[in-house]
Structure formats: structure tokens, C-alpha cells
């Protein structure tokens, strides 16, 4: 099974672990690993286009520059800018914060791609069925608004009431279409509510349409995620990374290395799973 097809719970746990470590640790070694692996998985997974990479680069540069410009803590001035010291410590902290931000943005983009609306609904539905119903209705109406918007526009155009000639006309036509849309949907919604009532909404427990089963594979994967996260956390705890007032780092203690190794494995876990699947697919094809 590809990583994206796993149970939403497993995927959520995985991203919670990875994002947790990325955002919780201000450890330069782990942030470097996070940055490299998240760019790597975005490139291999094809989740980020050229524009997204450029945007991330811009975020990285701006975040890296902002900290030394505004924070003047630290003991080692590199040079003076407008009579304010630009310190080595603030620069290094800025680089780390920028790396953290960029890596987190890449991971969040991955997460948005994997967590489609039905999966979000499944996750939320487990906690509150009523919230899930409201969310699913709102998502449904969002899709419906798009369809009905097009349909109303077409109808208005066929009637000769829709013009794109100048700006005022265009805005006025769209405002009219929106007005029609709202009236239609509100009336329709009351019918939906009526129908829900008559079918016994609120009288018993709700069942859900999506049935993701929790397989043994999911459980094992979740445990592996949590174990790797625990090792990384211990690694973070035992390695020293203080920025102010003076840089004092001790990243390469035995526990620090173990933590970094665990985090590396955790970061590339989806790539390993998908790679394994690709190899298996190749083997199956070559056998027949």
C-alpha cells in the first residue's frame, strides 16, 4: 500500500511526529536533516512545482535576514548596521529558524496533498459526528456553489442578461448571479433540513460512509513512528544547542547521533514505503 493510501490516522500520526520534531527542536543538526529530506521528498513525490520551490526559497531568505536585523542579543558582533550590531548568534539563530520554517512549509504542503477532504472528515467524524455533518454539508455546498454558479451564469447568458463588456456591468451581472445562487441554495437547504428531520436525524447514532479499516500494518507503522520520535526526542534532550548569549553546541554526543539517525529514518519513511511498493510493482510486472 502506498503511503497516501494508508489509514488517515496513521498519516496524521506520522505528520504530527515529523512536524512536532521540526517545530519543537531548535537543533541545527535536526533542522538541516529536516530541510534536506523535506525538499528531497517534495522533489521525488512531485508535490511542489517550480513556483512553490521559489516561494520556499524566498521564505527562507527573508526569515534568515529578519532575525539578525531586529535581534541584537549575542556576544560576537560581525559588523554594524545603522549603529546596531549584527551578531553571529542572531545570524545563526535566524538561519535555524528559517530552516525550520521552510522545512515545515514543505511538510505542510505534503500534508495538504495527502489529507483530502474525505480524510479530514473521517478524522473529525471520529471525534464529533455532528461537527462532521456540518463540515461535510459545508464542503458539499461549496462544491454545489461552483456547479450552480456556472449553471446560473449559463442561463443568464442564454437569456441575454449576462455581459462582460465593462467592469461595472461585469460586477453587476455577477452580483445578480450570486443573489440568485443564495436564494436558490437557502430554499434548497430548508428542504434538506426537512428531509433530514423526516428520516429521523438526531434520533440515533450516526454511521459513516467512509470505512477505513485499521490494518496490522497501520498499527506497526504508527508504533514505528512513535518509537523513532521518542528516540529523536531523547537525542534532542541530551544534545546541547544554546544560541544566546554565546553559541554553545554539543550535537555529536552518542544520543545526539542516535536521535539524528532516528529522525532521518522517520523523515524518509514515506519515500521508503513508496519505493518498496514501486520495486514490488516492477517485480510483479517482470514475472508475468
Amino acid at each position: 500500500m502506498r503511503f497516501e493510501q494508508l489509514n488517515p490516522f496513521t498519516v496524521a500520526v506520522y505528520y504530527l511526529c515529523v512536524l512536532g520534531i521540526i517545530m519543537f527542536s531548535m537543533n541545527p543538526l535536526l533542522i538541516a536533516i529536516a530541510l534536506v529530506t523535506s525538499v528531497l521528498s517534495a522533489v521525488i513525490g512531485g508535490t511542489a512545482g517550480k513556483k512553490a520551490h521559489l516561494f520556499s526559497l524566498a521564505v527562507f531568505l527573508i526569515a534568515a535576514v529578519l532575525n539578525p536585523l531586529f535581534v541584537h542579543k549575542g556576544q560576537t558582533p560581525l559588523f554594524f548596521f545603522n549603529d546596531n550590531p549584527i551578531t553571529l548568534e542572531a545570524t545563526v539563530y535566524g538561519l535555524c529558524a528559517a530552516g525550520m520554517l521552510t522545512a515545515a512549509l514543505y511538510r505542510l504542503r505534503d500534508l495538504s496533498g495527502v489529507m483530502t477532504s474525505d480524510r479530514v472528515l473521517y478524522l473529525f467524524g471520529r471525534f464529533s459526528p455532528q461537527l462532521a455533518l456540518l463540515l461535510s454539508m459545508a464542503i458539499r455546498y461549496t462544491a454545489l456553489f461552483r456547479v450552480r454558479w456556472r449553471r446560473t451564469c449559463d442561463a443568464q447568458r442564454a437569456l441575454g442578461l449576462f455581459t462582460d463588456g465593462n467592469l461595472i456591468d461585469a460586477v453587476r451581472c455577477r452580483a445578480r448571479v450570486l443573489s440568485i445562487l443564495i436564494t436558490w441554495t437557502l430554499e434548497n437547504g430548508i428542504v434538506t433540513a426537512e428531509s433530514m428531520e423526516s428520516r429521523g436525524y438526531g434520533t440515533g447514532r450516526r454511521t459513516s460512509y467512509a470505512t477505513y479499516r485499521v490494518h496490522r500494518y497501520d498499527v506497526i507503522l504508527m508504533l514505528v513512528c512513535i518509537w523513532l520520535t521518542a528516540v529523536s526526542a531523547v537525542g534532542i534532550y541530551y544534545s546541547k544547542a544554546a544560541f544566546y548569549p554565546e553559541l554553545s553546541m554539543d550535537l555529536l554526543s552518542p544520543w545526539g547521533i542516535a536521535g539524528a539517525a532516528a529522525f532521518t529514518v522517520l523523515s524518509v519513511l514515506p519515500l521508503i514505503i513508496n519505493g518498496k511498493e514501486a520495486i514490488r510493482w516492477r517485480l510483479l510486472l517482470s514475472k508475468t
Partner: peptide
């Protein structure tokens, strides 16, 4: 349930 549906519609409109 009526108010819930209308709220869902307004939410969808905002989205």
C-alpha cells in the same frame, strides 16, 4: 437542524 443547514450554507458561501 434548519439553522444548522443554513449555517452550513453560509459557511460554504464564505469558503
Amino acid at each position: 437542524s434548519r439553522r444548522m443547514v443554513i449555517t452550513a450554507i453560509m459557511t460554504a458561501l464564505a469558503v
